[in-house]
Computed example of a mutant assay.
Amino acid sequence: MTSRTMVARTMGAMLCVALAGAARADNALSLKELSPNGADACFGRIYDAAHLKAHPHQKVARIFFYYGHDPVSRPNEEPLANQDNSHNGFLTTTARDAKKPEWASGWCNKNDPGDPSSGIRCGMDCDRTLASLKVDDKGKLLLSDLSPDIYLDPDASESMSKAEYNKQALGSEDDNFKLEPMPADSCKAEFARIDPIDPALGDPLRVRLKPDQPFCFGRDYDDAHLKSHPGQLTQSIRVFRGPIELAAFAAGGDAVNWPDGADIAVSVTTRQKGAKITQTYSCQGEADQWRCSASAKMSDFSCDISQKEIFLKRGPNGTMMVSNPNNAVAVVDLCSKAANGKTKSDDKVYRLQPMPQSACAP
């Protein structure tokens, strides 16, 4: 998820997104019942063993509803200008014996904008309902209309066997919840259980690597490593942005949409006669990685290399992960006959260390 993947998890669900634009909330963070002061609001409940024993058809052991800014997405690689902030209602539940919560999100509006006493409906793509909401006179949130297949694809009841559907769907008693108001941090902590942050990863690459500053990452493999990896052709590798790449972005890039449009260069020296290949890629932020397609605009290549891709991810303790798990990182001229099909080597994933810019000089 994106780190931001919402409920639409298959092509069937994704087709609904185009039809949902008109239904999105126009009054985000303005529902006074949920948030009298306009701040993010949290409601939740954790059921004890006695309650669950008395309600054998209730699968939900923990439930939290958060009204406000996205508590799910981590600082990711997508440009801030492209991030979707339209969803303002977030639901997470943890089933009995489950290790992690599941979650869904939508946009919340009054059922009747002209009637202050009307309830609230939180909608989702494909004209589905996330939940109906009402706050009682004690400030507790009454959450109802929770569909058993809230976390499944819209066509799950038809595409799945009855047994599998019943296994993955919520229970017959998983509705009409009464949730207590809680501090916003309680909801944030609950949503953080979905995808725990690794503190060693630090800031995303788009924050660590500035659009107007060069960088250099690399690794040189010693004889012992190469001996233990006979299928690896790479002897040394450099991933960098230098004067050429910086000038290209300054001339045609948009810092607001960084890292979209960022050019990087990848140089690989093989242990076969020490041949060195340098290839330019054009990148864009996608969830937790930069997706970089081979570019011909600063190369002499004339073949179609747009489908040759690599991926950059932040690694622990300031490192960078570079990978192409499908075809391996290019260690040959991408327009040569040897580049057709898959690269038959173990040159697929690298963990690179930051290096001085001089280490990436041509």
Rank of each mutant, 00 (worst) to 15 (best):
L19H: 11
L201C: 08
R128E: 07
R96H: 08
K337E: 15
M14I: 15
L233H: 04
R271C: 06
G202C: 02
D263K: 07
G106F: 09
T269L: 02
K227S: 10
G315S: 12
A189G: 03
N166A: 13
C283T: 08
N82C: 00
Y66Q: 11
V329S: 07
K99H: 09
P113R: 07
L130S: 02
D136K: 08
P113K: 14
P154R: 13
Y350W: 11
G231N: 05
R121G: 12
D26F: 15
A18C: 09
A189E: 05
K188E: 09
V60M: 09
P362M: 13
I310K: 07
S323W: 00
A262Y: 04
A23L: 12
S172P: 08
A189M: 00
G139M: 11
D127V: 01
L209G: 12
N324R: 04
Q232S: 01
S144M: 09
F43T: 10
D125R: 11
L152Y: 04
L15R: 13
Q272T: 13
G274L: 10
I197D: 02
K167C: 11
K162W: 08
L209K: 00
G21N: 15
P36Y: 10
G242M: 09
W103P: 07
E77A: 04
L226S: 02
N176C: 07
S336L: 03
S345Y: 10
D153R: 12
E78N: 01
K210T: 02
T319E: 00
A8Q: 00
R291M: 06
D222K: 08
T2G: 05
A250P: 03
D203N: 10
A23G: 03
L29Q: 06
C283N: 04
R206D: 12
L233K: 09
A22I: 11
A163S: 03
V135T: 01
A262P: 11
I244C: 00
A296W: 05
K313E: 03
F191Q: 01
P316Q: 02
K308L: 14
L141G: 08
P204S: 06
G171L: 06
I264N: 04
I194L: 04
G12V: 10
S323H: 06
D149C: 09
I150W: 09
C360R: 04
G114K: 00
F65V: 12
W258K: 02
T10V: 15
G21V: 11
A224P: 07
N37M: 15
N111S: 07
C126L: 14
R291A: 03
A294V: 14
L19A: 08
L34M: 08
P148D: 11
V60R: 01
Y151Q: 13
R208S: 10
M11C: 13
P56F: 13
Y47D: 02
A248D: 08
K134C: 10
R351C: 03
A81Y: 02
Y221A: 11
S306N: 15
S302Y: 00
S302Q: 15
